[in-house]
């Protein structure tokens, strides 16, 4: 028995070592660096500086994340519901095929193609002009905050829809059948039977998307227009242009806190749903 325990410990040791070395150590090191001076004393100066210079950007990041996540939730649930519930199988199978495409396109490629697509005289506006829906004077550029949201939603939609469709397909059909027999409309089935059961999956999809959105640097760099910008850009800027790891780490701490806040909110909700609180 005893030897088997130590044997098991040896089995997990490589994985634990990997996690410790490449995840926990950098994490705690960056947290440590955010609140200490070069000499090792505790200080809040870096955090103060981060807030003094970048409070607008922090707010901007939160708004971008929230807007993207809300749009993502609405769109991915609609598509997943359409795929699961629609009676028109042929168009739905087409939809089921095409929505996955962005999964295979990296963020930087997405950003690059959106940059010339969404611009004032980009392909999108050109297409609108050619089809007579807009005149050249009415066109607007989507580069900036709206473009950033569009790119994030475009890219993450496939991932969220994939998760949510999977969860919907795994639901117990007898409930849906019963509701149907009792005359419930599809919308009602969606909102009253299906959604309540897949909230955990939606939560996971949204939190993973949040973390991705916070971490992507190429999109705000290529689609955003300087000020305000997202935290990731500011962190890169602090390092690239001042070699200032402290304030960059302080900004990192702020992003951890934003993600942690969302995760906490989600955990609390899901525990509440289970009746634990």
């Amino acid at each position: 028995m005893r030897s088997s325990t130590s044997y098991n410990l040896w089995l997990i040791a490589p994985a634990a070592l990997m996690v410790g070395l490449f995840f926990l150590y950098p994490l705690f090191f960056s947290l440590y660096s955010a609140i200490t001076t070069d000499e090792g004393g505790l200080t809040l100066a870096h955090l103060e500086k981060a807030f003094e210079l970048y409070s607008n950007d922090i707010l901007f990041t939160i708004i971008i994340v929230l807007a993207s996540v809300v749009l993502l939730a609405i769109l991915s649930i609609s598509i997943a519901a359409l795929i699961t519930l629609s009676p028109f199988r042929s168009i739905v199978s087409l939809l089921g095929f095409i929505y996955r495409i962005p999964l295979f396109i990296p963020f930087i490629v997405t950003a690059q193609m959106m940059r010339t697509f969404l611009a004032k005289n980009g392909l999108m506006n050109n297409a609108f002009i050619a089809s007579g829906m807009l005149t050249p004077l009415e066109t607007v550029s989507f580069l900036g905050w709206s473009g950033i949201i569009i790119v994030f939603v475009w890219k993450q939609l496939a991932f969220c829809t994939l998760l949510i469709t999977g969860a919907m397909a795994a639901l117990d059909e007898s409930q849906i059948r019963a509701a149907r027999n009792l005359g419930a409309s599809r919308l009602r089935i969606l909102f009253q039977i299906m959604l309540p059961q897949i909230t955990p999956t939606i939560g996971v999809a949204m939190i993973l998307s949040t973390v991705t959105i916070m971490s992507v640097l190429s999109v705000p760099l290529m689609i955003g227009t300087g000020t305000p910008t997202m935290i990731a850009t500011d962190m890169a800027f602090r390092i690239n242009s001042y070699g200032d790891y402290h304030v960059a780490n302080a900004l990192g701490l702020v992003s951890y806190l934003i993600c942690a806040g969302l995760a906490w909110f989600y955990l609390r909700q899901s525990l509440k749903d289970k009746g634990a609180i």
């Binding site: 095409i98 929505y99 495409i101 959106m114 697509f117 999108m124």
Partner: peptide, 13 residues
């Protein structure tokens, strides 16, 4: 609409 939003940027690329 979804297909347009999806394929528009890809076409551009």
């Amino acid at each position: 609409l979804f297909a347009f939003a999806l394929f528009g940027p890809i076409t551009n690329l």
